[in-house]
């Protein structure tokens, strides 16, 4: 059982000033997940009649993309995984006993409370074109189109994005390029996405700019922080799609 010195961001509301608050968290087992450590802290706070720290989480399986903490300066902490899949043994094994916890920071992700931020900008980027325009109805037989496995696999790799926003939080410019390119690339690698590829890339990039995400200057921090190992190759695909959509044929 280990003890940690935790400093965590507290901010009572969107317009309030925030600060780091210090806590000593005792009785932490290496098998506990990072969020279970925070549950433990919150249980203590509640028993003392204090408000627990607000943070987003839901599935705790690394798939919903809700959890979103910067831990000792790194989005989702020291491992290539989501905050919820991080375990306390990772700190124990490296003799780290001080933990700083902050929200994902970006102009486009305003803070709602404590470590909870508003990532609805991502939803609006998808709304602007991250889909295939097909109504529910009589789609052709699913096997009407064979898709070569390598293409399907590349599309899948991009589709694995969970929309967590770590790429934005890790980027000095708070760029959303990795997230946007993952969706562009997922649909660009499939025949279903072909008809709208021109408009899609344009309007998604425009919306990204409008939402206040920064520009991409190829630091590559996004890929390093991404829990799903989304590759910056997708950014190259996006750039290619963007240029092609201006100059040439779409296929």
């Amino acid at each position: 059982m280990a003890t940690y010195k935790v400093k965590i961001w507290r901010q009572s509301g969107p317009n309030a000033n925030g600060h780091m608050e210090r806590h000593i968290v005792k009785g932490i087992d290496g098998d506990m997940s990072f969020l279970e450590m925070l549950d433990h802290l919150n249980e203590d706070l509640e028993e003392q009649g204090k408000e627990p720290v607000a943070f987003d989480h839901d599935c705790r399986e690394g798939i919903c993309g809700a959890c979103s903490l910067v831990i000792n300066g790194q989005a989702h902490g020291p491992e290539t995984t989501t905050t919820c899949q991080l375990h306390m043994r990772s700190f124990e094994e490296h003799n780290v006993s001080e933990i700083d916890i902050e929200p994902f920071r970006a102009t486009a992700f305003p803070i709602i409370k404590d470590c909870v931020v508003d990532r609805s900008g991502f939803d609006r980027v998808i709304q602007s074109g991250g889909f295939v325009s097909v109504n529910t109805g009589n789609a052709p037989d699913a096997n009407a189109n064979a898709i070569p496995k390598p293409e399907a696999d590349t599309a899948f790799d991009a589709a694995a994005c969970i929309g967590c926003g770590a790429c934005v939080a890790a980027c000095k410019n708070a760029s959303a390029m990795l997230f946007v390119s993952a969706k562009v690339s997922h649909l660009a690698h499939l025949p279903q996405g072909d008809a709208e590829r021109r408009e899609r890339v344009h309007s998604m990039v425009n919306t990204m700019d409008k939402e206040g995400f920064g520009s991409c200057t190829n630091y590559g921090e996004c890929e390093a922080a991404c829990p799903k190992s989304i590759s910056t190759d997708n950014i190259a695909t996006l750039n290619r799609e963007f240029i092609r959509s201006k100059v040439g044929p779409t296929t």
Partner: peptide
């Protein structure tokens, strides 16, 4: 059929079929 039309990337065989 509908999900494939939406671009859901189901697993495929080497021949490209589902």
């Amino acid at each position: 059929d509908h999900c494939v039309a939406q671009g859901v990337p189901f697993a495929r065989e080497y021949g490209g079929l589902l």
